[in-house]
Computed example of a mutant assay.
Amino acid sequence: MIQFCPDTTRLETANLGVALFCAEREFLGTLMSPNNSRIIQMFGRGQRDLKRLKAVKQSLEQTIQKQRDELCDLEQIQKFASLHVNHLRMTRFMPCRIASTPEEELQTLFNELVELQRDEDDKHSPTINRMLDAVFSQQEFSSYIRRDVEVDVPIFRTRDTVPYAYQNGRLNLIKPVEFATRRSSVISKASRNAVEGKSIYENPDEEYGELQLVVVGSFEKTKPSEVETAKRIFEDHQVRLFTTEQIDELTNDIVTHGHKLD
């Protein structure tokens, strides 16, 4: 495990990544969390220099990759891990059974030990992501769209990564959301995203300035009543909503009112 320890006098840690060594297949790989959501969830944002921590994580990954040929047996791997015992530390390598390829096993370990659990209703959101990615990968949008933007959500004291964003006076954070069939679930999810959106809207980001949340929602069979319910909730909290059937309206807004990237 690769962990963050905010206070070395205590043993409280947050899992930030995993490393897997397989001598038989000459495999040494790492997978690190791209953001600091787990740290903020467990310890709060505090006064930590999270940008520096991101650089330290990247440096560790690069060091491991550069020394792959030297780290060719378990003894050398364990010695390397023992040298990293500060705020960013590596635990001792533990034996595990690899049931698939090392790459697949590394991803499985990361999902189980590092990645935050997602809401059950979000299980289909990758489908919306693929849809949006296909659209935004087109040449005409390449000069407008930012990807993987990290911003603070003050109301929840978290730092989230939004997959897409574009500027039109405010930085519009495009967030795909899968809404379930139950009306109660639609209201609950819309309300949470609305609270998040209002908090983002009212608290300018140090790096990006003023923000606005733009939800791209997938609704079961696009029930008009559910869409209208979510829309009313969002409008009261300065959140814009586009259904998956309204992607053309969103893309038209981007090319009409969006500012090109520097």
Rank of each mutant, 00 (worst) to 15 (best):
R170W: 01
R48A: 09
D205N: 08
T91N: 06
M32L: 11
D7T: 08
K221R: 11
T127S: 14
I247P: 03
Q246E: 15
Q167W: 10
N15L: 09
Q246P: 09
D236R: 15
G209N: 02
L241Q: 00
I247D: 02
G258H: 03
Q3N: 11
N111Q: 14
K221A: 10
D119G: 11
R38S: 13
T229N: 00
F141T: 01
T158S: 12
I247L: 06
D119C: 14
E12M: 10
R25S: 06
I77C: 06
R10W: 08
T30Y: 05
Y208F: 15
V149R: 04
R38C: 10
E249I: 09
I39K: 09
T101K: 03
S185F: 05
L60W: 05
F141A: 04
P95A: 02
D160P: 03
V162D: 01
V153F: 07
H257T: 15
I2D: 05
M90G: 10
P163W: 12
A134S: 13
Q238P: 00
D152C: 08
L53Y: 04
E104F: 07
R159T: 11
S143P: 00
I145N: 00
F93A: 02
P126D: 01
F27R: 11
G197V: 08
E70T: 07
L60T: 03
M131C: 05
I233K: 14
F4W: 13
